[in-house]
Nucleic acid binder design. Structure first.
Length: 104
DNA sequence: CTCTTGACGCCGG
DNA sequence: TCCGGCGCCAAGA
C-alpha cells in the first residue's frame, strides 16, 4: 500500500485497482463511486499517485484516454482486449464501461 | 485573500 | 463530429 494518509486518495486508488482487465471507468464514474469530490479531483489523484494502479483503465466519458498518455493507454487497453472503436483511438464505452460492481 | 490551472463533464450550435 | 462556453473542486502562486 502506498502510504498515502489521505482517505480520499486511498479510496480512489482502491476503486481503480478494482477495475478488471479489458474494462474501464470514467473519471466521473470513479468520483461518483467514491462519493466525494468530482472528476477533476480524481484526475489530480491519478496524476499524482496513479503510478501504482491501472491508470489506463480510467478514461474520459467520451472514450478518450488520459491526456499525454493516450498512446500508452491505448496500447495497454488493446493488449488487455478492451473494446476499442474501429478507429482504434478511443474505447467503446458501450461495451467496456465498468460500473464498479456488477458486470456490464 | 484572489487568480490561474488542471490526466473533467455536460449542453448547445 | 468538431468547437465553444459554463460549471465543478482543489492545489499552487
Amino acid at each position: 500500500m502506498r502510504v498515502e494518509h489521505n482517505a480520499y486518495v486511498e479510496k480512489v486508488l482502491s476503486v481503480v485497482e478494482s477495475i478488471p482487465p479489458g474494462r474501464v471507468m470514467s473519471y466521473g464514474d470513479v468520483a461518483e463511486y467514491v462519493g466525494i469530490g468530482g472528476p477533476r479531483q480524481v484526475g489530480r489523484v491519478m496524476s499524482e499517485y496513479g503510478g501504482g494502479v491501472p491508470w489506463w483503465r480510467v478514461i474520459r466519458t467520451n472514450g478518450s484516454p488520459p491526456a499525454c498518455h493516450e498512446r500508452e493507454a491505448l496500447e495497454l487497453l488493446r493488449a488487455e482486449g478492451a473494446a476499442l472503436r474501429p478507429d482504434g483511438l478511443r474505447v467503446d464505452m458501450r461495451l467496456a464501461r465498468w460500473d464498479g460492481s456488477r458486470a456490464r
